[in-house]
Design a protein around this nucleic acid. Structure first.
Lengths: 231, 231
DNA sequence: AAGGACTTGATTGTCGACAATTGAAGCGTC
DNA sequence: GACGCTTCAATTGTCGACAATCAAGTCCTT
């Protein structure tokens, strides 16, 4: 395994995927010597990686008590959607003004690709989610607001991905979502920022509602549940 | 100087205020040995503090090249307002639903206090800014969405404070702002989330416009200007 | 036997030194 | 005189060890 970049970067990435995938379960105490040993590095880079993950909101850190993987309660998952609604709505509005014609075309091509996949394989969850994040990511970038894009791709994205992965939430309604995506692109193509924002917000509101319904039927861990065990 | 908390915390705080105040000018290269020496600590805690500041968006870090204080271009300052508009609008909408009657009363009391100060001293910039952030902060907390509140109080707040401090931007229009604040509280008191969001967004749009006008008349540093010197 | 203070173990926080990479100064060559 | 290469200093990245803090278990006291 060759090393691209510094140790802190690699460990951060590995821990990130481990947390998202649930290999490091929610609430897990992150023991520094144990983790450093496990990944074959020293505690220095590990601590810096943990600090970075703390900034991403994937880990909480209490002085003299160590770091723990966050625990996403039902309420917190829904709260993420509220923030997304606000930020992605604004992103769509800005994108309607800033996006180049070529980017609009590329976005249309992307959606056409999604349509093929959905038709072919009935919208398998994996492709659907990847495609969905791809779509939203492009709009975030097209807003030409790096801070906004970074918030969506950083804090929000990883936490949401963590929930999706672990609840194996399959995006019901892929056709519906695709249709909403197309409407959003249409609004952007017509440079109607107001409409693009409205459509995007409704799009995320519907997704939030779908998640809320699924959460309704699932048991929830206690509000501030903390798990033990490191490996 | 007794120590509340860990070294990393203290250094992080000191660096934060130094950056906001411009004592560490924008684009300054942050030399680790020099800084550690200056604050009388080792490089370990310093590096962790830098990583935390990186998460707050006050510092950029390039591998093998060190960390630098960010440089806020005009465009970036305005972009912060766009993000604020989206997030604080959502915060106001949520606050309208979640805020307790007592909190509404406290908010009203706060605004009454502001009114007195403005009448008495003509709205001195310092008090005005402190009061303004206090108002917005309370609404962020009242949204009962910790992630949302943290974004506003973290990344956005510090960067904006940095600009305000260094441009010695005096909030023109304190009376107008106060009036807008009162309208927002009224909407919240009537539990009209829709209206509260609209008013908050307009409020921030106006602030953004005022900043844009002031920026128009000021010279701007080159887009990716980088300054040397550490102390 | 129950409660509390003490001790002990483990974990985090901090430090100084070594290794690796970068950027620039100095030299030689064309 | 200008360009490219080599060498060197400085800075960042990494490591292992020591000190401080916290939590749990034990022992003593009442």
């Amino acid at each position: 395994m060759l090393e691209p970049g510094t140790l802190t970067d690699r460990i951060c990435e590995q821990l990130k995927t481990a947390i998202v995938r649930g290999e490091l379960a929610q609430g897990t105490k992150l023991n520094e010597p144990a983790l450093a040993n496990r990944y074959g590095i020293s505690r220095g880079p590990l601590r810096e990686a943990l600090r970075r993950l703390e900034g991403l909101g994937l880990v909480v850190h209490v002085p003299h008590a160590g770091a723990r993987v966050i625990t996403l309660s039902r309420a917190e998952v829904l709260q993420i959607y509220d923030v997304r609604e606000a930020l992605e709505g604004m992103a769509a509005r800005l994108a309607a003004v800033m996006m180049t014609p070529m980017e609009v075309e590329e976005l249309r091509a992307l959606l056409a690709q999604h349509a093929c996949r959905i038709a072919a394989e009935g919208g398998r969850a994996y492709f659907q989610h990847e495609g969905d994040t791809d779509f939203h990511n492009r709009i975030a970038c097209a807003s030409r607001n790096p801070g906004l894009a970074q918030m969506l791709r950083g804090e929000l994205y990883h936490r949401l991905r963590m929930y999706r992965y672990q609840s194996s939430q399959q995006s019901s309604r892929p056709e519906r979502a695709l249709q909403e995506h197309e409407q959003i692109v249409d609004a952007i193509a017509e440079r109607d920022g107001e409409l693009a924002e409205t459509l995007m917000r409704r799009h995320i509101q519907r997704a939030r509602r779908a998640v809320a319904e699924q959460l309704q039927s699932q048991p929830d861990q206690p509000p501030n549940f903390v798990a033990e065990e490191t490996r």
